[in-house]
Simulated scan of single mutants.
Amino acid sequence: MTWIRVASTGDIKEGSGKELNINGQRIALFLSKNRYYAIEALCRHQDGSLAPGKVEGEVVECPLHFWHYNIRTGELLDYMEGVQLNTYPVEIRNNDIYINL
């Protein structure tokens, strides 16, 4: 695994997300309640990006068809059991955000 600098802390506003493309992987980075989360960016339903979704606490709502995912665990919270997106550890170093891939 490798730590990669992906953004600065000022790049993401509270309660929102940003999609990143890191080595061909689409990852959504979220800031919620002063904590950063990194998760696979694509909803399992129809591959819509979760990054512009509505964030409340540890839950993001896919903007296309309103599926809900826990941004800490990657778990889909409705519709089907056992669906889970990959999550990635996040570290803040000075004002830089790093993700461990």
Rank of each mutant, 00 (worst) to 15 (best):
T2D: 10
W3P: 07
I4F: 02
R5G: 06
A7V: 00
A7R: 01
A7N: 11
S8T: 09
T9F: 01
G10N: 15
K13N: 14
K13Q: 14
E14G: 11
E14T: 02
E14C: 06
S16H: 05
G17T: 00
E19S: 13
E19N: 11
L20N: 09
L20T: 09
I22Q: 13
N23E: 10
N23G: 10
N23V: 03
G24R: 02
G24D: 08
G24Y: 07
R26W: 05
I27F: 01
I27T: 06
A28S: 08
L29T: 02
L29R: 00
F30D: 05
F30N: 09
F30H: 07
L31S: 05
L31T: 05
L31G: 10
L31K: 15
K33Q: 08
N34S: 05
R35P: 07
R35T: 11
R35H: 10
R35I: 09
Y37M: 10
Y37W: 10
I39Y: 00
I39M: 13
I39N: 04
E40R: 04
A41T: 11
L42S: 06
H45S: 04
Q46R: 12
D47A: 05
S49K: 07
L50W: 00
L50R: 07
A51Q: 03
G53S: 07
G53Y: 01
K54A: 15
V55Y: 02
G57P: 06
V59R: 06
V59N: 00
C62M: 14
L64D: 03
L64S: 03
L64Q: 15
L64V: 15
H65V: 01
H65G: 08
F66T: 14
W67I: 05
H68L: 09
Y69I: 00
Y69M: 03
N70Y: 08
N70L: 03
N70K: 06
R72N: 11
R72K: 12
T73A: 06
G74H: 04
E75H: 02
E75V: 05
L76F: 12
L77R: 06
L77D: 09
Y79M: 10
M80H: 10
E81Y: 11
G82W: 15
V83N: 09
N86P: 12
P89V: 02
P89H: 03
P89Y: 04
E91V: 15
I92V: 12
I92R: 08
I92E: 09
R93W: 07
R93V: 04
R93T: 05
R93C: 07
N94E: 15
N94I: 13
I97D: 00
I97R: 05
I97G: 01
Y98I: 10
L101W: 03
L101G: 08
L101V: 02
